[in-house]
Amino acid sequence: MSLLVVAKKEFAEQVGSRRFIVLTLLTMLVVAYALHMGLRIAHQSMRAEVLQLFIGTGNAVFALFGAGLGLLAGFDLITREREQGTLKVLLSHPVPRDAIILGKAAGAFAAISLAVACVLAVATGAVLIYGMPLSIEELADVAAFGGVTVIYIFTYFSFGIFASAVAKSSGTALTISALLLVFFSAAVPVAGELVSSRLAGEPPAPPVYEHRVHEDGSAALEVVAEPDSQAMRAYEQKMAEYMERKRRISAIFGLFSPVYNYKELVRYLMAERTYGSHAEVLNRLAGFVAMPAVFFTLGYVRFVREDVV
């Protein structure tokens, strides 16, 4: 019961906060504008691409604004309560600490879901205005995209609430949250690229070029193999293996990057579930869900154990 009381208040506080309203409206506007521009040039014959356009636009916009929305929703949830003196008042009532942090998470989750639902409703409306109604299956795909997006935003919320539990002030919590965002969304994928390039070895040399010296003394690389020759096919085969090796190493790092996981899962949805192997998608999904779970648990443990002074 205490959990529900906290969740209700938290939801009201989140949806009523200026930063939440501004970020949600901004996301809505950008999605609607991008769809409007895309649909204006799309022809009715491109019907099959509408869903791709819909989800692709949402994906790009949410990847950017969603991270901010999640982070800002969580970074000062506990520090602000400490700073304004409400945490002590709240804890002087018979409210278990886990009900406080779980209630805060539940309220924020509901608010994030509402924001995503609003953006998707606006996007669906934009598509309908262009006379391209979505089928039931397409709407289900949009809903699945919404679900993945909520988890993506909640990941950044979990960074925020973890920072809020360990930091003494909201300023420090914001810094920690931002560092986590940069580390997992930028540093990890870049590190993945660098490590995969190193571990995958040298790319195969193309057999189709040869260093030739002409009669006039000039030298140049020239094509000596035809595209369908055996040498060319062998090269292509080796190149594909090399790229796959690199992608696999990179994908391991990608498991620790919310934005990488999010984009890969959305790509899977857009490709009508033909992108990537089943095991690969499951791994990605596990990585995608594990990250917010880990950070939220760390924040939870810190909060329930701390002395309230």
Partner: peptide, 20 residues
Amino acid sequence: PLEVRRVAGYLPENPGFYPW
């Protein structure tokens, strides 16, 4: 600790409330 908070009331130093 929860049981104590059912039978005791506490006015902390510098109590805070939700300003909004």
